[in-house]
């Protein structure tokens, strides 16, 4: 499936980059459905890592380091880890090192001023690297959404521990994203809720009708992929 995507592309470089953008979700058909993983698929992913090599050293987690390279490092780690698992590679033979840290959340159970206010530009509250603390549930949930490719079975790490520790913050984040009509972000955060629900954790927001709402709204192929994976996690789709 992955190799076929590269083979058919007019621009192989863009196709290989797209594999990295999709990230670990490229393995979802092999983890959650009955797709067969071929060695050519592994070769395509390996070539993507060769063409766009991840940093040798892992970036520091925020606030010590910038958020963007750290997020990319986690996503690369997820993809490399699943590739190693699917190809039965030796332990430690992953193509990307494992970063440290997880999104930090403080005051998880304290609503902070009711969240965004109408008419204000939420972009002003977006995570930044200017030294401002960005550990409230609004920014934390967005950051967890940016790490949504890690919300797959077979992956485990501090990010998953952070998600399990704060289902309420995830539910708030998903609700906030829906109210902002930022449906791709809502779908990404809902994936964590779906993973927690699939693990048997009680989540304060039922992800099933939320996923249906997001599916009906649409919002591009990435949202469709996130919703499809979440529905698979919840065993809503089996065909």
């Amino acid at each position: 499936m992955v190799a076929e995507h590269v083979e058919r592309a007019d621009d192989p470089k863009a196709a290989l980059a797209a594999i990295r953008v999709v990230g670990a979700d490229a393995f979802a058909p092999y983890l959650l459905a009955d797709a067969v993983f071929h060695p050519q698929d592994a070769a395509a992913v390996t070539q993507s890592f060769a063409l766009f090599p991840p940093p040798v050293t892992t970036p520091d987690p925020p606030p010590a380091g910038a958020a963007e390279p750290w997020l990319v490092a986690w996503r690369d780690w997820a993809m490399a880890t699943l590739l190693a698992r699917l190809t039965d590679a030796e332990p430690g033979g992953a193509l990307a090192p494992r970063p440290t840290g997880a999104p930090v959340l403080t005051e998880a159970d304290q609503p902070q001023g009711g969240g965004d206010t109408d008419g204000q530009d939420p972009g002003a509250d977006a995570p930044d690297d200017s030294g401002r603390t960005d550990t409230d549930w609004q920014r934390w949930s967005v950051r967890m959404g940016q790490l949504s490719p890690l919300a797959l079975p077979g992956l485990e790490g501090p990010v998953h521990t952070a998600a399990r520790a704060a289902p309420l913050a995830l539910a708030r984040g998903a609700t906030r994203a829906v109210l902002r009509r930022d449906f791709p972000t809502a779908a990404r955060i809902t994936r964590w809720l779906a993973l927690l629900a699939a693990e048997g954790t009680r989540v304060p927001l039922d992800p099933v009708p939320l996923l249906e709402h997001l599916r009906l709204h649409g919002g591009g192929p990435r949202l469709a992929l996130d919703v499809a994976i979440a529905r698979r996690l919840l065993a809503l789709e089996t065909a």
Binding site: D116, D118, D121, P122, L179, R180, R188, R222
Partner: peptide, 12 residues
């Protein structure tokens, strides 16, 4: 492209 930030503007 990999970072996928949230929408800058709210459409609430």
């Amino acid at each position: 492209a990999m970072v996928e930030p949230e929408a800058v503007l709210s459409d609430a």
